[in-house]
């Protein structure tokens, strides 16, 4: 078992689906961080069997909608004085803007410059989104 020190002030992104930790690490630009960051992959988990987690010794802005879209089972813990002061359980966001692109070649997003691709959650259980402009279905697959 690998041990990594607890952090005194910062953020722990926990319960990341094993294998998704690196993409979140990259999405948050943590490879360019000038503060302490730990990416732990395949840590044992009672809930998931295996999980990834990221410990960040700093307060950074997190786009919770984006994180929820990458993995809705993530827990974000805010740490102060080595204690969890806030625990945020993520879920699939109601709206997703500028993250995924509409695949419908007839959609206005395929033609207009500067248009932001927007999706709205239709079915949380099955992770089904639809394009706000053309209603094209997008199925979330994690």
């Amino acid at each position: 078992m690998l041990y990594i020190d607890s952090i005194s002030k910062g953020i722990v992104i926990d319960h990341i689906r094993a294998g998704a930790g690196f993409s979140i690490f990259k999405y948050l630009d943590l490879d360019k961080a000038d503060f302490t960051v730990a990416l732990i992959i395949n840590a044992p988990s009672k809930k998931l069997g295996k999980k990834d987690l990221i410990k960040i010794e700093n307060k950074i802005d997190l786009d919770l909608a984006m994180l929820g879209f990458i993995d809705p089972n993530i827990t974000v813990n805010i740490i102060e004085g080595e204690k969890i002061v806030e625990k945020i359980n993520l879920s699939l966001p109601r709206r997703v803007e500028g993250i995924i692109e509409c695949k419908n070649p007839r959609c206005v997003t395929s033609m207009e410059r500067n248009i932001v691709h927007k999706f709205v959650l239709m079915d949380e259980k099955d992770g089904v989104y639809k394009c706000e402009y053309c209603d094209q279905i997008y199925s979330w697959e994690g």
């Binding site: 959609c107 997003t109 402009y133 053309c134």
Partner: peptide
């Protein structure tokens, strides 16, 4: 009227 779907909404 527009050939692209969602153009009037935009």
């Amino acid at each position: 009227r527009h050939p692209k779907e969602g153009a009037p909404k935009y």
